[in-house]
Write a protein that binds this DNA or RNA. Structure first.
Length: 423
RNA sequence: AGAGGAGUGGCAGAGUGGUCGAAUGCGGCGGUCUUGAAAACCGUUGUACUGAAAGGUACCGGGGGUUCGAAUCCCUCCUCCUCUGCCA
């Protein structure tokens, strides 16, 4: 969530930024936020003045009672009745304005970083890096949804029976390959200084709001009605919320965490012929990296996280590219996002396997995540996160790209984890 | 899940209707003393909104209520502890 003080200080840049996102009525929306904030202040001031008078009278009554002057006390009580009624009105008005302001601020996305390109669609995402070679596969190469049947390693039909579409069952070497990747990713993250955590995979409403999934993407999360809990769409939610309502000391920064969790996404309305097999699931596994740092360090941190993800893909021998997302494709809460896509040889298409973002203070403002700087002033921190990595599409790419007449070759770095070199 | 108890500042812990944003101790910070350190002593030490400032307002688990006035009384929710039950 943007801060009104920021909006006032950098109005021109914010308007430009919102236009990059094709956000409608940028000027009017920001002006409205500033106006509502003014109203908030003035109604707060009237209410405070009212309460101050009531407090003064209450003290006076207390003093009179002590001296036994009950008649005198009763006399001033008349005024307090008026004040009480007024305070109630003023408080209601204040709450109304505050709520209206908050509702408005919830609708305003983060301001894109200066380097975010303008664009009309995902076609305009900027390719900033291309690494490796296109896999050369024989004509007979099969897409992963055929391979998994042939080798009996992932079973969609079984998942449909016990749960529903989009919940595959990993079997035998498929299950082992997935576990190998998880362990490999976690070991790499640990080596890079990301402290491992295992958070809950159900979260409450406050957590969903703080990282920005709520109220914006309510329908995308599974919800457990009986207990008012949401299944996480990404480990970003619980891990970042570890630091909700926290004031860190400068020497605790940066905070770096990695966590492995299943992720759950309803993906309502986003299904079609182009999302076969492992390309899109309701439940999938992912190792997430999260970083919290001082504002001046966050873009260096973003680069560091990108290098980490790039390193993983290189070790797995995958052909990949990095995209800088354009204004219309970048996520609601993000200021700058790099997507990583691997080439899936048999499908002949790029699959997104990671998204690394800097949220600047957008999440921190909702989280109330701050630190005391060298002047002992508390100020908002920057939050970042990225997938390192999402499993199913990596598996799809490995299966497709590494297939030959003898089966599927396991990447060298994974063999110590799988215990076999071929499926 | 049932019965009982409890939630107060970084921590411990007092406070059962007014002078309480809250005693006291510990911790933190600054200082005196010291070659230095420790001890001792003195001072200081929550967050947010608002205001140029002085100040004002709110916050004693969350929300609501009673009262001129609530940390204190009432309702409700949450969390923790003890006992009983159940369970990986």
């Amino acid at each position: 969530m943007l801060q009104v003080s920021q909006i006032i200080a950098e109005k021109e840049r914010f308007i430009e930024g919102l236009k990059k996102r094709k956000f409608p009525n940028a000027e009017a929306t920001l002006a409205k936020a500033i106006e509502l904030d003014e109203m908030r202040k003035s109604s707060q001031q009237s209410l405070d003045a009212n309460l101050a008078e009531a407090n003064a009278i209450a003290k006076e009554i207390g003093a009179l009672m002590k001296q036994g002057q009950h008649a005198e006390a009763d006399k001033i009580k008349i005024r307090t009745a008026e004040l009480k009624a007024q305070s109630k009105d003023l408080a209601e008005k204040k709450e109304e304005v505050e709520k209206e302001l908050q509702t408005l601020l919830y609708t305003i996305p983060n301001i894109p970083h200066i380097s975010v390109p303008f664009g009309a669609s995902e076609e305009d995402n900027e390719v900033v890096k291309l690494v490796g070679e296109m896999p050369v596969l024989p004509e007979s190469a099969l897409p992963h949804w055929e391979l998994i049947k042939q080798y009996d390693i992932i079973d969609f039909d079984l998942g449909i029976k016990i749960t529903g579409a989009g919940f595959p069952v990993f079997k035998g070497k498929g299950a082992r390959l997935q576990r190998a990747l998880v362990n490999f990713f976690l070991d790499e993250a640990t080596a890079a200084g990301f402290g491992e955590v295992q958070p809950p995979i159900l979260v409450n409403e406050a957590s969903g709001i703080a990282t920005g999934q709520l109220p914006d993407k309510e329908g995308q999360m599974y919800f457990v009605n009986n207990d008012n809990l949401y299944l996480i769409p990404t480990a970003e939610v619980p891990i970042t919320n570890l630091y909700r309502d926290v004031i860190l000391n400068e020497d605790q920064l940066p905070v770096k965490h990695a966590g492995f969790t299943p992720c759950f996404r309803r993906e309502a309305g986003s299904w079609g012929a182009h999302v076969r097999g492992l390309n899109r699931l309701h439940q999938f596994d992912k190792v997430e990296i999260v970083q919290i740092c001082k504002p001046e360090d966050s873009y260096k941190a973003l680069d560091g996280m990108c290098n980490h993800v790039a390193g993983l893909l290189e070790k797995l021998g995958l052909h990949y590219r990095i995209l800088r997302l354009c204004g219309v494709d970048i996520g609601f809460t993000s200021a700058l996002t790099y997507d990583f896509e691997v080439f899936s040889g048999a499908q002949k298409k790029w699959l997104e396997v990671s998204s690394v973002s800097n949220f600047e203070t957008y999440q921190a403002n909702r989280l109330k995540l701050r630190y005391k700087d060298s002047d002992k002033k508390t100020q908002l921190l920057h939050t970042l996160n990225g997938s390192a990595l999402a499993l199913p599409r990596i598996i799809a790419a490995i299966l497709e790209n590494n297939q030959d007449e003898h089966g599927i070759r396991i990447p060298e770095v994974l063999i110590p984890y799988t215990g076999f070199d071929r499926i």
